[in-house]
């Protein structure tokens, strides 16, 4: 079965993205396909590669990046929500005249249409938020 996942809260403050990670890992292990995870609202903040959590804590961004690589999961960050919150990839940074970018490997910035498309193309859509 194809399962799409929407993450609506940012890392570390809310458990939502940790729950989503555990869920996606379990879904893939059970033989389901998770073609895409869409990050919206503060969920876009998961994608920053500049996060430096203490060594004895999980690194949320790195866990997702590794998961995406290993299981070919499309991690999409909503562009409108991302721009509000200072999340830019190299292209967007250049286009907006900003001096830095912060999107981690495995994540890509795209439009809300990707969320709708995920709803159309998957059998189930599960939302993790707060």
């Amino acid at each position: 079965m194809k399962i799409g996942v929407l993450v609506s809260e940012g890392p570390y403050t809310h458990q939502a993205v940790d729950s989503a990670y555990k869920f996606v890992t379990a879904a893939i292990a059970a033989g389901h396909e998770v073609p895409r995870v869409f990050f919206y609202h503060d969920g876009v903040n998961v994608a920053t590669r500049l996060s430096v959590p203490p060594q004895d804590e999980r690194n949320i961004q790195q866990n997702w990046t590794a998961l995406a690589k290993e299981h070919n999961v499309d991690l999409v960050v909503c562009i409108a929500a991302a721009q509000r919150r200072g999340m830019l990839d190299a292209n967007e940074a250049e286009r907006q005249g900003k001096d830095a970018n912060n999107i981690a490997e495995g994540f890509r910035i795209s439009g809300l249409g990707q969320l709708i498309e995920m709803g159309i193309q998957t059998d189930r859509l599960v939302t993790f938020g707060d």
Binding site: A26, R124, L125
Partner: peptide, 20 residues
């Protein structure tokens, strides 16, 4: 239920609705 049980519940029911 554990996480695999969560996944099974998602698959078993026709839709999932989150009450945030």
């Amino acid at each position: 239920v554990d996480y695999p049980g969560f996944v099974d519940l998602v698959a078993k029911h026709d839709r999932t609705q989150s009450w945030l």
